[in-house]
Nucleic acid binder design. Sequence first.
RNA 1: GGAGAGAUGGCAGAGUGGUUUAAUGCACCGGUCUUGAAAACCGGCGAGGGUUAGUAGCCCUUCAAGAGUUCGAAUCUCUUUCUCUCCGCCA
Length: 429
Amino acid sequence: MLDSKYLRAELAETAARQATRGFVLDVEKINALELQRRELQVATQELQNQRNSKSKAIGQAKARGEDITPLLAEVDGLGAELDRAKLQLDAVLAELDAIAATIPNLPDLSVPVGNDEQGNVEVRRVGTPRQFDFDVKDHVALGEALDKGLDFESAVKIAGSRFVVMKGQIARLHRALTQFMLDLHTEQHGYTEMYVPYLVNKDSLFGTGQLPKFGADLFHTQPATEEGVGMSLIPTAEVPVTNLARDRIYDLAELPVKMTAHTPCFRSEAGSYGRDTRGLIRQHQFDKVELVQLVHPAQSMSALEELTGHAEKVLQLLELPYRVMLLCTGDMGFGSCKTYDLEVWLPAQNTYREISSCSSMGDFQARRMQARFRPEEGKKPELLHTLNGSGLAVGRTLVAILENCQQADGSIAIPAVLQPYMAGKTVIA
RNA sequence: GGAGAGAUGGCAGAGUGGUUUAAUGCACCGGUCUUGAAAACCGGCGAGGGUUAGUAGCCCUUCAAGAGUUCGAAUCUCUUUCUCUCCGCCA
């Protein structure tokens, strides 16, 4: 959510910047509503003021034992008038809130302008794709050949498409990756490991920006549109972890807060029919190790570089070639003001595919969540900045390892850093 | 799942319809005193919003959340959520 005062004052500027991400801000409508809001709010508060002071006068008169009948006559009709004003005001406020809740974050000025992923800018490439002297197989073929380590058929039977069953050494490799990532981030990068709920309420989804706009991307235990009922499966640990800051005021000394969590993620993938239907790339359920930081506003841009580096470190240690993409205005997520995607090299697809997305949300989520810090003892609390990134998506990392570390006989050479997590094994055959 | 008791500012804790503009204590901040500190004393001290040039003043909202009764609600009524105690069930 954007600052309503800023939105009012800099409406034209905001509209221009939103346009770069393909979002049309209805300036005239907002101006008209704002005009009404101002008038109605002042009028309503004035009526409330009258009611309060007159009611108090009645109380005082009664305490003195005076006749309060004339005073009661004075307030006659005031309540009805107030109700009417309030009703109108609430309607206008609701309309303004509804608009505000659907406005994306403002892109940072360092973000390149572009319409779609074609406009993304490659920042750097790390590692060189390996040259194979045999025909590479994709992860689906490799996984199935290894004692049905990846079993999509069984998953269809027990759940449906876009799920997977893992077995034996592949399942263990998947677990090993998770442990490795968590250990790296907690022991080397200073994150605190968190275990969090996988089902969350509406307030949390609003806080991080999934609601009201993106409810269709989630799985809900009951329709989330109904007031107060139903929880939703988390689409990312970003939701429960970032919401730990909701309605909290941190001391300056507590910042930055750096948290990591491993959770399954659930996404309905509505609207992605026909894309990545084969394999592990796009699933309804996948595991991810998430990095979240809560920082002082002055630190958020440097924290984004740092956090992105933490995610990159995973790829470097696994010796997987990747590149870093700076997303353009048109390709960024709803709440982000700046995003780096990490794309890992997949030899079977002969291309780089997204494996992590690291974003600074600025104060966008913090404002929705009222996540704040106190800059100085006795000073007013200010909104902090939130950042998050995948460090990494575990399923896609598994894909990258299977494909990049495959050998001519179909076996998989286990990266050195994972071997301690695989009981010392060096190869999966 | 059943029965009962609760939810008040950072914490503790008064307050059962109008001198509550939420008492008081602790914590915290500023001051007096002191070589310095402690103690004592004095003052301040929640959050959100509106108006505004304003971090000034004034005003509104906020006592778990929502709805209601009333001229007036922390206080009365209803619904929901959560917490605690006991029982049941379970990992």
